[in-house]
Design a protein around this nucleic acid. Structure first.
Lengths: 225, 225
DNA sequence: GTCTAGAATGACCATGCGGTCATCGATCGC
DNA sequence: GCGATCGATGACCGCATGGTCATTCTAGAC
């Protein structure tokens, strides 16, 4: 909401003008990615002059950092909220709610989500790799925390390597969320916005894979199809 | 090997000159991605004139297509080879060998692998999304085939949805291969080139997750740590 | 030796980029 | 009313890009 980014001049601006600039930048970066995004377009969309924009953000990268900061902050607070809300409930349920929260986030903030995915996957952004490390690291650490609690509650096999499992689960979640966002990834598989039934099925399938894998002769499985 | 890409003039070129051009292009695209890659650099590296390059490939995209064709063809033949070599062996072993073949492919053709990952993840390439659909679709279909065979051999739970499982496994494999290629993704987790022991551990962990999941009370699990 | 088809060449073009800066204009204290 | 301060402005800069084309070069026919 209140930007920590930008120069002193930018911070002194009226809130709605700040919003206009950030919104224009978000649109441009989300639409075109970092490299192809044009400062000229941002200027036009925001309704300010080029000189002003560069007085608000010294470089293109600084502007991008501002937008990314927004996306990161929102995503992080979303995760925190979910963790706290689901404290004490079974692991599987927690994971499910977190995954679903991701879908909701995408629905509500598609542009920010797009920035986020660009950051994770494209290598287009400057210093993108470093940010990727941080982002993924946080998500994995977050999942690892949940797994550790599940371990204590004896909900998962004690032989499981928590960090590695968190890495793999994170991978699955990322893939699902990305597929949910872009029908490109899983064409015809029915994982896209507006098809709640298929989405439920995917969540179910994924969690089933995470907890029980492929192998036959399940004993505790509760299955219905 | 023998290019199906390029204009008539290019195809009429001496083989070593073709190689020089394609190699230069591969380097440039792998290093910088499609958008930032410069035709001028390719020209310099290949030791030909700009006019000639554009006589060999009408546009930048045509040149990119040529390079991508190489990467796709090689990757596909690699997969085919693995499938045929492992026919008749247990599913888990097949999956393991395919995953390991991926690591070997990266070791042997790092530049082609980079192109491949760029294609899958960046959205930087033109018509990238369409190619992503094709590429991922093929990989998933390939995995689904194996799973179906595993299903017939009663190696996996009959309730498993083969297509969805293939999608998820493909996601895990992609993530692992990508992490193997760039230590960025999993810093400090020890999944990188030159550490065979950790790599073995990762393969083991991943397959264990795929087949048995997280849950306790495994019955058929063969574990050693 | 001469002619010619066609490949090789690199100077050149329009375009768009991120970024700058001399100038302008509004707001303030007095 | 006046000067001073400082944000707003957009023409402008250097640069790199993908792509073109008039010209030059070269290999083969006769």
């Amino acid at each position: 909401m209140i930007p920590r980014s930008g120069t002193r001049v930018f911070k002194a601006l009226a809130a709605d003008k700040q919003q206009a600039v950030l919104q224009a930048a978000l649109n441009e970066f989300a639409l075109h990615g970092y490299r192809k995004a044009s400062m000229n377009n941002v200027v036009k969309a925001a309704g300010i002059s080029k000189g002003s924009l560069f007085q608000y953000f010294k470089t293109k990268q600084a502007l991008f950092d501002g937008v990314v900061g927004l996306a990161e902050g929102l995503a992080r607070s979303y995760l925190r909220e979910m963790r706290d809300k689901t404290a004490g409930t079974p692991l599987r349920q927690r994971l499910e709610r977190i995954l679903r929260a991701g879908f909701v986030f995408i629905d509500q903030q598609p542009l920010l989500a797009r920035i986020y995915f660009q950051l994770l996957h494209s290598g287009d952004a400057p210093f993108g790799s470093q940010r990727i490390v941080t982002l993924r690291g946080q998500a994995q650490e977050f999942l690892a925390d949940l797994l550790r609690q599940g371990l204590e509650a004896k909900e998962i096999d004690p032989a499981v390597d928590v960090k590695r499992a968190a890495f793999l689960i994170n991978s699955l979640f990322e893939t699902l969320l990305r597929a949910y966002y872009t029908d490109f990834l899983a064409p015809g598989l029915g994982l896209y916005q507006g098809n709640a039934k298929d989405l439920d099925h995917w969540v179910e399938t994924t969690l089933e894979m995470i907890f029980n894998g492929l192998r036959p002769n399940k004993q505790g499985a509760s299955e219905s199809s």
